[in-house]
Design a protein around this nucleic acid. Structure first.
Lengths: 135, 135
DNA sequence: TACATAAAGGACTGATTTAGTCTGGTATTA
DNA sequence: TAATACCAGACTAAATCAGTCCTTTATGTA
């Protein structure tokens, strides 16, 4: 279906929220959850993923929260999406570790190589679009 | 996950098969199924979808089968994919009939408009690539 | 020091989607 | 009339996704 997951959507929304108030301290998961009507636990998890990928930084305790680790115009959509999704390929066999064990057609596939070019172009779209452009 | 469905994959493979032998009569579902190791019932269904979308024509009975209805370089990947998939949008709210009933954020969404541009670029990739290019 | 706040992280569940199968039908040719 | 091959819808099992629950760890403040 070529659809982004909710996690990816929420990650983009959270990134946008933080970008919009980047210079006024931390944003909490609760704050983002309530502002954008996103389930708290989900957005919390997504924010943790962003921290793991060094897109955001976090601070525990009172007055803690999350903040983007760098300027919005240096964070691409693909950075965000890769932080929360394991796969980002239009077909399974393009995953880094895929082999003939994953696909009966692996060694004789008729569309893999041509689709790799399509994949490259899609990656380009998400790589070239930054958080700054979705504000 | 932004992944194509198996139906879309099989549709592309079937289209490729037909394109490769376009001028030597019909290809049967069985033939394509066996050549490319695709479950027969699935590829049969996919081929029916292609017929419904006027991408392929069919003939019943002995010596029947399927054939592309026009030249491979006039059939884009998006034609094929739309023939077999109901949705082809990165987020639900971009579906033609979507409304605030489908998404709690519909009227206040922070990322819909920017993502529409991303969607447009992805559509462009699939529109500009034709079957002739995956042969 | 105690307490409130807030992130970290794992386990679990229910709903949805996907892939694939089964069955019966219709049309065509030899 | 028998074999071939498309047409069509219902159905099932497996996988994925979205969301929840619960416990732990860290930090600032009264």
């Amino acid at each position: 279906m070529l659809k982004l997951s909710k996690k990816a959507e929420y990650a983009l929304m959270a990134a946008k929220y933080m970008a919009l108030k980047n210079h006024s301290g931390f944003s909490t998961a609760k704050e983002i959850s309530e502002s954008y009507q996103i389930p708290y636990q989900l957005v919390a998890k997504v924010l943790q993923n962003l921290v793991k990928s060094d897109i955001a930084i976090s601070a525990k305790g009172v007055n803690g929260g999350f903040s983007l680790s760098r300027k919005a115009n240096t964070i691409s959509l693909i950075d965000i999406i890769r932080a929360v999704e394991t796969d980002f390929k239009i077909v399974d066999c393009m995953q880094v570790n895929s082999s003939s064990a994953d696909c009966v057609h692996f060694d004789c596939c008729k569309i893999k190589d041509p689709l790799a070019e399509v994949q490259r172009k899609i990656d380009k779209v998400f790589t070239e679009t930054t958080i700054a452009q979705i504000l």
